[in-house]
Each structure stands twice: as structure tokens, then as C-alpha cells.
Design a protein around this nucleic acid. Structure first.
Lengths: 140, 140
DNA sequence: CCAAAGTTACACACTTTTACCCACTTAGCA
DNA sequence: TGCTAAGTGGGTAAAAGTGTGTAACTTTGG
């Protein structure tokens, strides 16, 4: 399970720290990072990639071939160094608009990598009333 | 079941005592604290988080991804130390406006963490007539 | 084919944060 | 008055995060 928010900055060598909790949740060794939507990056365990691949393979829809191509072409395998930092390819950094401040959040079964300003703006756009509505729907 | 009110203060290290009764009700080990609405924090057992996660994962609604991100990004796992204290991340303390005096209340299936002044003001704002009306609706 | 330049990987040192441990105080109770 | 449980305060060690140097590798141009 992934949750929580972590703020880091990309160092001069382009390295980005990845939260220790998430490293554990990713399992041993490497995991996968890919483009998602709204200029965020998707980080998920190898096992989840397999699951998605299977699901898309089973999909009868005509466009699953194009869809997986679009998605998987951006995916890359990363492995944290001894200090827990990862090095993202320039294309992914550019897609997400990552320059200095980066926010990594947990979201159920995956982590998301955002430019900090982008993430803050996105959260600020959610109103108290929307959250209240969500609470009602969840029947907590 | 969570009920009752407990008043504590945050110490110099940012630690906050968590009521013994609630610790028991949370079950063994750690539990989860997250932002809620009206500047209060929500504390609930791990099992409840799993339940919410499942429910949201099953949700067919287009925006469930955004919704879980908004909610889960604020969540954090905490485990009371041997004295029963928890350490809240700075972001959560800030959201709830916690500086010194903190009030923890029980509310059915979860606990809530409030700034004491905020909680007192909120209670003071409820009128006798509102309580009377609520009583009628509950058929107590 | 080789050398220079840039990139990536690895190692180490340092700082900050968090976890853990122990001691003390207070309140309730027999 | 002693006992127990709850709550509070502080010291110390481990872990997480950050910065810098250097070697290995890749790329590029002559």
C-alpha cells in the first residue's frame, strides 16, 4: 500500500530521492516509472506492470494494442542507489516538468511523481465541499 | 468503538499522546492519520484504510484516481511509542493548526484530532435547538 | 582507432530527522 | 501507603536524506 506525501529536490546530478517507505513497498530491486496523465509520472512495482499487461492483453477492445504501445513506450526501469536515489530519463523529467522541487505521493497501489508547484496547485483546486461530498459517498 | 474527549499538549519534539482507550481500539501496532475536512485530522485503523482503498479501487467513476490521490497523499502511518505517543508529520500539524493544545475525540469508528481552540469554538457554535432537533431525528 | 568530453555508477562523509530507551510525575485505587 | 497505569520530559543511537569526489563507461569528433 502506498500513501503519504514526500517532498524532495533534484540534485545537481539529476538524482531524485525516493521515499524509503515506497522503496520497501516496491519490493526488492528495481521498479517501473512511466508517463501518466496531467503531467505526472506513475511509479509502480514490476508485479503491477505484469498485472496491467495481462489485463490489457485480455481486453477485447480494438485499441488496446495502441494503448499499450502509447503507455509502455514511456516506461523505464529504475533502481535506487545505495542512498535510495533514482535517476530519471530526461524525457520523463521533461514530461512532468521536473526541474528542482518534486513531490512524490502514494496512491493505493502506486506512487506518483509530481512537480511540487503542480501538485500544490492541484490540491488547492479541491474545495472543502468536494471533500465533504466524498466523505458522504464513502460512508465513513 | 471510539468515544470521549481527551486533551493533550504537543511536546517540544512534536510528539502527541494518544489516548490509551483509542490505542486499544486501533488494534495492534500502527494506524493511519490523514487530513479530513474543517482542519481536523482523521485517525483510523489500518483495516479501515484497506476497506476504503478497496471500495475506491472498485469505483467505476472516472475521477476515482484523482480522489484517492487527494486523500491518500495526506495519509501517514503512525505507531505509538512505548509511552503511547505518536509523531505527526509537519504537514498534518500545519493543516490542523496544531501548535500546543490538542483535543482528540472519539467518533464511532474513528478518532479525530483537533486544535483545542478550534474544537471548543465548534462546539460552542452548536445551539440547544440544533441538539434538540438532532435528538428527534435519532429517535433516541 | 584514439582521445576528449560528458554521463552514469559507486563510495564516502555529513546533517537532519526519527526511533528507542530510561526516568520522573501524577492520578486512581486497594 | 504502596501499587499500577497513564502521561510527560529528555538523552542517545539508528535511519533517512543530501552533497561531493572519483572511477567506469559511453558518446562524439578528429
Amino acid at each position: 500500500m502506498f500513501f503519504g506525501r514526500y517532498d524532495y529536490s533534484i540534485d545537481a546530478k539529476g538524482r531524485l530521492n525516493f521515499p524509503a517507505k515506497f522503496r520497501d513497498a516496491m519490493g526488492e530491486g528495481s521498479f517501473v516509472v512511466m508517463e501518466w496523465v496531467d503531467n505526472c509520472l506513475f511509479a509502480l512495482p514490476m508485479s503491477e506492470i505484469d498485472r496491467i499487461s495481462e489485463r490489457m492483453g485480455a481486453d477485447e477492445l480494438m485499441d488496446s494494442w495502441e494503448t499499450t504501445g502509447d503507455l509502455f513506450s514511456t516506461a523505464c526501469e529504475v533502481e535506487p542507489d545505495k542512498q535510495g536515489r533514482i535517476l530519471l530519463p530526461a524525457e520523463l523529467r521533461e514530461y512532468a516538468g521536473l526541474s528542482k522541487n518534486v513531490t512524490i505521493i502514494g496512491n493505493r497501489n502506486h506512487a506518483e511523481i509530481w512537480d511540487t508547484d503542480t501538485w500544490n496547485a492541484r490540491r488547492a483546486a479541491v474545495t472543502n465541499e468536494q471533500r465533504r461530498q466524498r466523505m458522504r459517498e464513502l460512508h465513513i
